[in-house]
């Protein structure tokens, strides 16, 4: 019985504590760069699309809200011919970003994306692709990967030796 009064007294004392509510939108909270908000697709430092349509983000997505289809340019670069995120399903878990081997898909500190119609929450590639590099300014997948594309031949990637001469006779 006494505990009830103690509880009530304790709760009453909370009246003199500082309030924790942040009065959004007048007051804006600090969002860390790694905040998991609206998803974007970034470009590499040369301006090419970073996404190589490897489907890993789609596979990692626990709510299966990412769909894409791979295509290839004349240069030998693979890219998504369409890339769709259904934000009405997205739970902003960030697994897609973790899965992405090219830093293409990134979550940004933006959560203000309410819509009146659910259909408007379906983002296509043109809504997702930005013109910058996002959080990773220097990374360029094709400079690391052993695949040759136009402008980067075999053996020209980082840490690669020139192509083997298979007709050479030297031991």
């Amino acid at each position: 019985m006494l505990s009830l009064f103690k509880t009530a007294w304790g709760v009453f004392l909370r009246a003199f504590e500082k309030r924790v509510t942040v009065s959004y939108p007048e007051e804006r909270p600090y969002l860390a760069p790694r905040f998991r908000g609206r998803i974007i697709l970034s470009r590499d430092p040369d301006g090419g699309e970073r996404c190589v349509a490897c489907y890993l983000c789609a596979a990692a997505c626990p709510v299966d809200c990412i769909a894409l289809d791979a295509a290839e340019t004349e240069d030998g670069r693979r890219y998504p011919s369409f890339f769709r995120i259904n934000f009405s399903r997205c739970i902003f878990c960030g697994y897609c970003e973790e899965a992405c081997p090219t830093y293409a898909i990134q979550l940004t500190p933006d959560f203000e994306m309410s819509e009146y119609a659910r259909q408007s929450l379906v983002y296509e590639k043109e809504d997702l692709l930005i013109s910058g590099t996002g959080k990773y300014p220097d990374y360029n997948f094709y400079r690391v990967a052993g695949l040759a594309i136009k402008g980067k031949d075999k053996g020209e990637a980082e840490n690669e030796t020139p192509p083997v001469d298979i007709r050479g006779l030297m031991p």
Binding site: V11, R14, A15, K18, R19, V20, T21
Partner: peptide, 11 residues
């Protein structure tokens, strides 16, 4: 209620 729960309540 808000006061005792460190919130603002209707404002």
């Amino acid at each position: 209620l808000a006061l005792w729960q460190d919130r603002y309540g209707p404002n």
